[in-house]
Design a protein around this nucleic acid. Structure first.
Length: 553
RNA sequence: GCGCCCGUAGCUCAGCUGGAUAGAGCGUCGGACUUCGAAUCCGCAGGUCGGGGGUUCGAAUCCCUCCGGGCGUACCA
């Protein structure tokens, strides 16, 4: 918020400089305002002089001097402006500006950090999209948490967000699921059965079969058609998946069934559209899509010689529907094993005349589970994987969410089960939550025992907040709205996590060094307002990543 | 072979469109509770930013190349 104000002033000065003939407009939009790493370099700095000097073959420090002169009139915001290093212009902001932050935060309350940069734009976030063949794995969990956090960020920045789950309840996988369930059912009855070679071996199938047996006895023993078994299993598994997602506080606005694409003829239509454009041909009994026309190495099969489509075709049809449904931006969250489909789908939508730059794919790398310092090998088929449910049982939703968001999507994630379970009190999520609980506790202490009367935030003596620690906390809070915007636009929720950890660190340190409530009444009042503001920022930040902000722990 | 991702402290990772002395947590070691919650804090130690070139005022960040790891490279999803 302060940074944006400064940038405005700077832009004015730039224009003035052009008007006065000090420089040309060549550097417009190329310079930036940054937050220096070292406090000695000010609260903010700009490289404007160096950029201009580069364009105009002048000395950076001379240009910087001219800029400083232009800035001389902006004393309300700045207490000091100086030229440093190779030509940086460093800004020192008036304390009064920082001291106004609690006012802004408290007035905005739960709206602090929200913005409207996405106003009027509809965005579709597709994530999880697991087919109902088994419980959600930790990989799905990462995706669920990531997608949800991204959706929250986009909502916070004003986008009209739809969360969508795309699934397929038809096809080969589901047939195998039905066969597996039937085999287990027959086993329960003590009848001979043939478990499919590539069947699903998880215990959840046994449970489904057992329930089925209890309900219908042996009335299905001669049923050769696996449909009834498939549907039974699908229903149970989907219920399970939804329970798991609910436990994490994740909800979808819409479930999109791949099968409906076939029923509505949309898959066939894609083929004929592409064929009309000459981008499809028949060879070896299969139908091929000329992906080479879109810069790829070789063409891809979209309909197998058996007449069944490959996964690419419905994916293309699905994405075309996303466009047709009128979204301005489509965000797909995929596991890195789906990387191969991305170029095909994008080529498909481009071939159909849509702007594929409206699709952003967030690929997240795998989660490897570590137990006893060793990697746990996992496979859905073999059912030797750890489910998200099990993880939730052990550490709870807050830790799961926090852990999955601690790393950016494109780094692999080692989930240390030992740390997450046995040593959970050392988990960083508690560090942040404890910060919030502590803030609450201070306010409670005052309300219940000390009773320092708190004037309105407008009349509170906030100018007394002048300790370096206090000013740093104020600065951190002031940077929060920009952080939310940038995290949203870049789809990088992990930055919120890092910010919260940083802020918690600042607060804990401050807490241990200085007392909020003391005999000095005006100072206590100012600090109580600081605490209130800080608590709001914690709440808003935690809420943005879907982690609870507890008052007590 | 080719494509994408990753390689930063003992371990796990941050580092926004290239910026001025590279950060945090965990771990090690040593300290701090008669005061708002010690699930906390303070301090010490720890680095050729995988290697080598290049681009420029300036590179962990951009380009090239090599090395190492992951995921793909299906008429599986």
């Amino acid at each position: 918020m302060i940074k944006a104000r400064l940038k405005e002033r700077l832009d004015q000065c730039f224009v003035e400089g052009v008007k006065e003939g000090s420089w040309t407009g060549a550097a417009e939009g190329l310079y930036s305002v940054e937050e220096p790493k070292h406090a000695a370099h000010g609260d903010f700095s700009t490289n404007m002089a160096m950029i201009i000097a580069g364009k105009e073959k002048k000395k950076p420090r001379d240009v910087a001097g001219l800029l400083v002169d232009l800035l001389a009139s902006h004393t309300d915001l700045l207490k000091k402006v100086e030229v440093a290093g190779p030509g940086f212009v460093n800004f020192f902001v008036n304390n009064a500006v920082w001291q106004s932050v609690p006012r802004v935060v408290n007035e905005a309350g739960s709206d602090f950090g929200l913005s409207d940069i996405g106003k009027g734009k509809r965005v579709l976030v597709e994530f999880v999209s697991a087919n109902p063949t088994g419980p959600l794995s930790v990989g799905h969990g990462r995706q669920a948490v990531l997608g949800d956090a991204i959706a929250r960020l986009l909502s916070a920045t004003g986008y009209d967000v739809t969360r969508e789950y795309y699934y397929n309840d038809a096809g080969r996988q589901m047939r195998v699921l039905g066969e597996s369930t039937r085999a287990r059912y027959l086993e329960q009855l003590g009848l001979p059965s043939e478990f499919p070679e590539d069947g699903y071996q998880g215990e959840y199938i046994d449970e489904i079969a057992l329930e089925l047996k209890d309900e219908v006895n042996d009335s299905l023993k001669d049923t050769e058609d696996v449909t009834v078994f498939k549907e039974r299993a699908e229903k149970a598994i989907f219920k399970d998946i939804n329970n798991t997602l609910n436990r994490m506080g994740i909800h979808f606005d819409h479930y999109y069934n791949e099968h409906s694409l076939y029923e509505d003829g949309l898959v066939d239509d894609v083929v004929s559209c592409l064929r009309d454009k000459g981008l499809v041909y028949d060879s070896d009994g299969a139908v091929w899509f000329k992906t080479t026309e879109f810069g790829q190495e070789k063409d891809r099969v979209i309909i197998k010689s058996t007449g069944e489509p490959t996964y690419r075709l419905p994916d293309i049809a699905y994405h075309r529907e996303k466009f047709r449904r009128g979204y301005d931006w489509m965000v797909d969250i995929f596991g890195s094993d789906h990387i191969a489909t991305v170029p095909d789908v994008l080529a498909g939508v481009r071939a159909l005349g849509y702007d594929d730059s409206k699709v952003t794919v967030v690929l997240h790398q795998f989660v490897t589970l570590m137990r006893d310092g060793k990697q746990v090998k996992m496979s859905t088929r073999k059912a030797n994987f750890i489910t998200i449910d099990e993880l939730l049982d052990e550490v709870g939703p807050d830790v799961v969410r926090f852990f999955f968001l601690m790393r950016k999507a494109d780094s692999q994630l080692d989930f240390d089960l030992d740390l997450a379970t046995t040593q959970s009190q050392e988990n960083p999520v508690f560090y942040v939550q404890y910060g919030h609980a502590r803030l609450t506790s201070i306010l409670k202490k005052n309300e219940e025992t000390v009773n320092i009367e708190l004037p309105s935030v407008d009349s509170a003596p906030l100018h007394l907040l002048e300790l370096p620690e206090e000013l740093n906390i104020l600065k951190a809070m002031a940077s929060y709205p920009d952080l939310v915007k940038n995290s949203a636009l870049d789809l990088t929720p992990h930055r919120i996590i890092f910010f919260l950890q940083e802020l918690a660190g600042q607060f804990h340190s401050y807490y241990n060094k200085h007392r909020v409530i003391s005999d000095d009444i005006p100072l206590s009042q100012a600090r109580l307002w600081l605490v209130r503001a800080l608590r709001i920022v914690f709440r808003n930040g935690l809420n943005l990543v879907g982690v609870k902000a507890p008052d007590t722990m």
